[in-house]
Amino acid sequence: MSTPDKQRIFSISTPADFNHMALQIFQYQAKNCEVYHQFISGLKIDASKINTVEQIPFLPIEFFKSHRVLSSYAHVELTFTSSGTTGVTTSSHYVTDKTWYEYSFNDAFKLFYGDIRDYTVLALLPSYLEREGSSLIYMVQHLIKESQNPDSGFFLYNHDELYHQLKKQQQANKPTILIGVTFGLLDFMENYQINFPELIIMETGGMKGRRKEMIREELHAVLCSGFGVKAIHSEYGMTELLSQAYSTGDGIFVCPPWMKIMIRDTNDPMSALPNGKTGGINVIDLANINSCSFIATQDLGKTYPNDSFEVLGRFDQSDIRGCNLLIA
């Protein structure tokens, strides 16, 4: 089969549309992604007999650290890499057509927030700016450019400049989004406080070893107090994906129509769990057409009846044994 086109994927509007496209993409990747093909074969699964989304096997995300996960022989345009401490193997996501990523984050942003040109986009992402290969930086750079707003931009450690820009936005009554890594937002708050109720704070997670980890409720309470907002927005994405889910508060995320979260049993990774049960997060990302759209992450979470989901933490090394059994 040929590669499904962007128009069909990014115009998905019903669960039936999603399931149909997911099965079509599964068959394509089971044949064309060598790593995924070998993984499926190792599980003694006949890909041709998969006829429901629930039967699709999910590739453990660790494969992105050790293999080139590709479903295309086209030239690699971009390579996104995950962050990691010295000595830790990082993930690489090889992207053969960057327009899939651009369509995905542009359409998702519009779906959740409207026209990017209505906003000033400010970014406090020091740890990401200080390395190459960040998919988050690529996305935010494009959003800043597409906002067509001269006040949009990145801030490294120039907190004084960011504070004055926020005050300027507030006084001008301009819709503003501040996208920040968690430790960066907390560092900013150590010296600056602002009461800007209309500001959208979008935290992307991560202390990056800079600060002690905090539970979400505590972190969001601190951020709400420091910026004078009622809720903290969040983005759920990762190097290995080309789509993002968004939360507008309380840590409850919603996916765009071409992305879906499923929960697997931590003791039996081939078994799915119902809504409300905590387990490992599996992601179907149909924008990942040229790598693998079916990924078993190391995150723990639960889904809810309205297709929203919550991220509750990560597997520790002992918990990952189920995934490791699959890799073996």
Rank of each mutant, 00 (worst) to 15 (best):
S2T: 01
R8Y: 00
F10A: 01
P15V: 00
Q29M: 05
A30M: 04
C33Y: 00
F39T: 02
G42A: 01
K44R: 12
S48E: 00
T52M: 03
V53E: 13
P57W: 10
L59A: 05
H67R: 13
V69K: 08
S71F: 06
Y73E: 09
L78S: 11
Y94H: 15
V95H: 01
T99R: 12
N106L: 09
A108G: 07
G114S: 08
D115I: 11
D118P: 01
T120V: 08
V121N: 08
S127P: 01
S127C: 04
G133D: 05
Y138F: 15
E146Q: 14
Q148L: 08
Q148R: 12
N149W: 03
D160N: 09
K167G: 02
V181G: 06
T182I: 11
T182W: 07
D187F: 11
N195V: 11
G209F: 08
R210V: 11
R216G: 05
H220S: 02
L223D: 11
F227W: 04
K230M: 05
T239V: 05
L241T: 08
L242E: 04
L242I: 03
T248R: 13
G251C: 07
P256Q: 09
M259W: 09
I263V: 14
D265R: 12
T266C: 08
G280E: 07
I284V: 15
A296H: 14
T297N: 05
S308L: 07
V311Q: 13
L312T: 14
G322Q: 12
G322I: 13
C323K: 11
